[in-house]
Design a protein around this nucleic acid. Structure first.
Lengths: 179, 179
DNA sequence: CCGATGTATTTCAATCCGATATATGCAAAA
DNA sequence: TTTTGCATATATCGGATTGAAATACATCGG
């Protein structure tokens, strides 16, 4: 599944510029399970426009740089549906955190502790953000799909936090605090 | 963290050829949190040899193609330790499974069900393999690091399975069966 | 007024993936 | 028996992707 398909998917929720798609991938819901950089998003959008799956409309903005807003065409929506039904590949996971801790013996105990504590902080922040009623997290997404995926991610983050909490003694960390 | 560091990490457990490193990344413990292809492993090993972090010894084998066995040098071990203590980046996750289900509304219900059922099968197989006493899974890895990471992964897979089980009704799946 | 930050796009070297090519031996199917 | 497929083993290369920098303009705080 390439970046073009990802762009179609994001655009299915409404028109957006390349910059806005990138922001969605960095800060929004998609950030938990996909990624892409400017260097792949912009070329993908250009190609999709050429193929007729999106239309790009130059939009002059007062007090901002112009932006090119892309919009899904009917053909693009059909194409997205088609691509989503293609066979999917396995999850791609690349965790430097786990790679480093796999070699915990080569690290000073102090460094192990710091890694774990930082991870716990990140997980707590992430869970809080996903649980909290969502001032910041604009709940643009409605329907069962986003809700299902949201629950899926939350379940994983909570499991990670629980596990780290259960391993506190192992890393000589101070006692558990409430999640 | 690049492929070269990954090669140093795998070689820390004992000498290996490029092919054996790849196998370890596909089938072994590393497969759950890292990845690399031949196209990046072989050049990385050549570069590491040139830099003096590994030594490559041609080894003729009866009834097999020759292989080049790489071995960590003392300088390589120091370099690995140094690189493992560098600041780590965030986890990279790319899940086509979650991308597709995020857009569940665009899919036929039959397709949703098939995806979930396949995922459940994969997770069950994965958990069984990690839990089972390990005839196949050669427990080459000793020490607290691998054990910690093993538990971490297992906790995540179990949480995923539990969540999917709790969502069965949502996908019109038959009743829960024992994990 | 000046630097920092946010919006917006483009470009590019370095990296990495995925597939293919090449070579060999073994085992099972045809 | 032949041949087909599979496992071992490395090299190579086109194409996709990353990550960072370059460019441009506007706003806001000090």
């Amino acid at each position: 599944m390439d970046v073009a398909t990802l762009c179609l998917a994001v655009l299915a929720h409404g028109p957006a510029s390349g910059y806005e798609i990138k922001k969605e991938l960095e800060d929004g819901a998609y950030s938990h399970f996909f990624r892409a950089s400017f260097g792949s998003i912009y070329p993908a959008l250009a190609r999709l426009a050429q193929e007729g799956f999106v239309t790009g409309r130059e939009q002059e903005q007062a007090k901002r740089p112009d932006k090119k807003v892309y919009r899904l065409t009917p053909a693009g929506k059909r194409e997205l549906s088609r691509r989503l039904q293609a066979p999917i590949g396995p999850d791609y996971i690349r965790s430097e955190f786990l790679l480093v801790l796999f070699h915990a013996e080569l690290l000073p105990a102090r460094h192990r502790r710091a890694l774990i504590e930082e991870r716990i902080r990140q997980l707590q922040a992430c869970i809080a953000e996903m649980t909290g009623g969502g001032e910041a997290a604009c709940n643009r997404y409605e329907g069962s799909g986003p809700a299902f995926v949201h629950g899926y991610g939350l379940a994983i983050y909570k499991a990670e936090l629980d596990y780290l909490d259960s391993q506190r003694r192992f890393f000589d960390l101070p006692g558990a605090n409430a999640a």
